[in-house]
Design a protein around this nucleic acid. Sequence first.
DNA 1: TTTCATATCGAATAATTACTCAAAAGATAA
DNA 2: TTATCTTTTGAGTAATTATTCGATATGAAA
Lengths: 317, 317
Amino acid sequence: MPRDPKSDRLRLDDAARAGWLYYVAQNTQDEIAAKMNISRQSAQRLVALAMRERLVKFRLDHPIARCMELAQAIRDRHGLSFCEVTLVDPTSDNPALGIAEVAAAEMEKYLKSEPPIVMALGTGREIRGAVDQVSRMTCPQHKIVSLVGSLAPDGSANVNDPITVIGDATGAPRHPLAVPVVATSKEERDIICAQIPIRRNIALAQSADVAFVGIGELNDAPPLLTDGFITRRELQELQAAGAAGEILGWVFDDRGRLLHGLTNDRVASVPLSPTPARPFIGVARGPNKLRAIRAALAGRWVSGLITDETTAAALTA
Amino acid sequence: MPRDPKSDRLRLDDAARAGWLYYVAQNTQDEIAAKMNISRQSAQRLVALAMRERLVKFRLDHPIARCMELAQAIRDRHGLSFCEVTLVDPTSDNPALGIAEVAAAEMEKYLKSEPPIVMALGTGREIRGAVDQVSRMTCPQHKIVSLVGSLAPDGSANVNDPITVIGDATGAPRHPLAVPVVATSKEERDIICAQIPIRRNIALAQSADVAFVGIGELNDAPPLLTDGFITRRELQELQAAGAAGEILGWVFDDRGRLLHGLTNDRVASVPLSPTPARPFIGVARGPNKLRAIRAALAGRWVSGLITDETTAAALTA
DNA sequence: TTTCATATCGAATAATTACTCAAAAGATAA
DNA sequence: TTATCTTTTGAGTAATTATTCGATATGAAA
């Protein structure tokens, strides 16, 4: 069986061809089969493969009035320079469906720039979903830098870091942050962040031309807890102190104020800047993120937002 | 029946929503019907409408080895700075299928530029097909200028000019060339081109940052003949003189040399420049254009080419 | 208001596409 | 080479999607 990469490539080429004939040229699978000299079933399988491997991309090319209005309302109300509102599939099991595509398109817009830029990325399902959707392109002139540590509490590196994925897609050099998200103590954090290479990367991230970050909630089982950076007790303390959400691990309350004296003292991520001058785009959606998004907007921690229709409606209600 | 534009817009919004749910979110039409509270048939109709109105766009996001190789071979052999080779549907009745999408994507790349640019366009089915595919976007900073007259021999203006279409899609100001493609005499051509506004537009077109042109054949029934700019007798004279193809009405032979003393003396289009410094991209495909494309490449009249697999294979054979 | 032309709708049905399963073909290792 | 495991294939069938057609609704004109 073709396990060698060459025959895999050939098969993907065929899949792309079949997918093109099906979606772009509007052939039936029977017609594709005839043109490619294969059976109808094989044509079907190739089209399905093209889909699975995302060789064909779909995009909605029509401004939907409701989404435009919601985006405008959010921009106006929260003083954002950028807001995109996408459609939503209420029953999809993919929590990033929709916003991932929009965020990827926005990333590509920056990556298409001819002069070199620095793009900074956070972590989380939304950012991961977005970078997965970024098309393969050649732009080695840019730099991709991580805003948040990629080390698990046990010291192991996360191989599925968003910047790894987008670096593979673009050929741009990556600058991961080889630190944990939250250190075990304030002192450890200070020592880690004092290291020259770390400081250099943080400085690079702070000079980034654009940043994309997730906005995390702090209710039942936030990633910070499940990833083992904070204990359940610390989570409860944060909640008692009014924690509403976090960005890059920095926890803030409903009015957007960073919580002092708790886990924030040990966060090793790039510091947030209030009312960022350069595009600093939050990507989040969903009812359980509503409070966190509201708080992030109240604190002016983001200059742009990508969310979905339902969330946007709740935000403007 | 809803003939008013408002209800049409609502319907298109619904169509976009249905198309998104179908293609992006991978719902079945039954699921869409349930989510949108309509019948399954209505859902089907909305999806079909979204297709018909091109509210959802498909694009192939996978480099096909064969196409890449052909493009590379053409670039190398003819000293082009740009060449794209697209897949082809041998039985499609749309002669621009494939190259239209690629040309539109290339146009959009330029139109996305933040600093203002000038884009020049020729005419013909291929260019028309390409501009039809350009997404709606907002870029009033650019200028769209025509490289070729938009007046029919009877003096009527062509309302379906490519620059009209692309101007509508982008909001960019248009600079049509209110002249015929071929004047009735050398003197008339000189008088027309001496007019200040015409000269200004021609100068603008010559300063364009990028140009897209069709490459026309001169065999049985070329557009120049069917549009009434030249007579059958003149066509025969051109053919006898070795005419192989034309760009913007300028006729050249197989070695790419402009034919002197015939219709070229009366062409009112923007002059061609040999080995253009800025991107000057030919868009053409098909067996009956092969000779014209070869001649255009031989004459170095274009710096880039968008064609299809079959044509590319013939060019490199 | 009535009439007419047109658009929309749902049901029925035809066409197309997706899935399942058993058989065949390739690869791998003894 | 043979045994064995895995992948691919095509037939059959189920599911989904597209089309046709008659009925109904709607706006415009009389």
